[in-house]
């Protein structure tokens, strides 16, 4: 089957414990069994996707069953890779400075705010650029809300910073050019004068391009599902997700009410979420133990709207 799907990446977001892993596994399985080549990837450091699919997952795609591969990203490895690249660059540039104790500096940086989110972003970029072309659909099981919102907002927020820094860099390069033109013997001539030769400008441009690709993925190419349970806490969190994603111009495709019937009594979705298509999945009192049970959750309506929104032509 060679489908054309513009939204080929599906995200499952929500409060911890609402059933993101269960629904993402069920969604991935149903698509795979319908004949689409699917990659299910867990971004959640808790890594329950392997438990749901009944297989020990690694950072490389593992074959789960025909048409379905799965992986769990190794966040620690991504943090180390990213820091190692910067460390070796720094070492080669500042090699004369023997007093700079880079190793201990980088051990601390591992715990610097933002490093984990960045590592997650580059892991998603790797999946999007290197693995996604090999599959029809990529299903991403995300970590609980706080971390997910941080990595979803990073491309937009960092993109603004990088844009302004690039503008400032252009002004610096233009000033250097003017000085050297007026005074060819100025010590400024030793610095970079041209945008094409300036490594800082080049690096800013490459970061901007990478962030732009991810921003486009989140805003335009994703099928984003927010999972709630019939309780006020998870709905409050869904409202916060909606507020934040509205600010970032990332559209929510569906709201999935999981564990319907878990509590007795009337329950209504909040009116702010009422305009988004709602899908409900019953509470399984005996739990879900096998892959076949995952496919019996009634995920087909969600797949139908995925195809509809993604302009699929199978």
């Amino acid at each position: 089957m060679s489908p054309h799907i513009s939204h080929k990446t599906a995200f499952f977001l929500g409060k911890g414990g609402v059933g993101k892993t269960t629904l993402s596994a069920s969604f991935a399985l149903a698509l795979a069994r319908a004949g689409y080549k699917v990659l299910a990837a867990s971004l959640d450091p808790a890594h329950n996707l392997g438990d749901a699919l009944g297989l020990k997952l690694k950072s490389e795609p593992q074959h789960v069953e025909p048409n379905l591969d799965a992986l769990e990203i190794d966040l620690d490895a991504w943090v180390n890779t990213y820091l190692e690249e910067s460390r070796s660059q720094l070492k080669s540039t500042y090699s004369y400075n023997v007093t700079l104790n880079l190793d201990s500096f980088f051990k601390i940086l591992k715990y610097s705010p933002g490093t984990e989110e960045y590592a997650m972003l580059w892991a998603i970029e790797d999946i999007h650029c290197n693995l996604a072309p090999l599959y029809d659909v990529v299903v991403l099981d995300t970590p609980p809300t706080a971390l997910s919102l941080r990595f979803l907002s990073l491309p937009t927020i960092s993109g603004l910073w990088v844009k302004e820094l690039a503008k400032l860099r252009e002004t610096i390069l233009s000033k250097r050019n003017t000085i050297v033109r007026l005074n060819p013997d100025s010590p400024v001539k030793e610095s970079c004068l041209d945008k094409d030769d300036d490594k800082v400008y080049g690096k800013l441009s490459s970061i901007r391009q990478r962030l732009g690709t991810l921003e486009h993925l989140f805003q335009k190419e994703s099928f984003l599902n927010v999972i709630v349970n019939p309780d006020d806490l998870s709905v409050s969190e869904a409202l916060r997700i909606k507020d934040e994603l509205d600010r970032l111009e990332i559209p929510i495709s569906t709201i999935c009410l999981n564990k319907r019937g878990m509590v007795n009594g009337q329950w209504h979705i909040h009116q702010s979420l009422a305009s988004i298509p709602l899908f409900s999945f019953d509470f399984e009192s005996n739990g879900i133990r096998t892959r076949d049970q995952l496919t019996e959750l009634g995920i087909q309506p969600l797949i139908d709207i995925f195809f509809k929104k993604g302009s699929l032509s199978a």
Partner: peptide, 12 residues
């Protein structure tokens, strides 16, 4: 900006 951007530019 987030520290990782500064770290990526630090070598230059």
């Amino acid at each position: 900006p987030p520290a990782p951007i500064a770290i990526e530019l630090l070598p230059y």
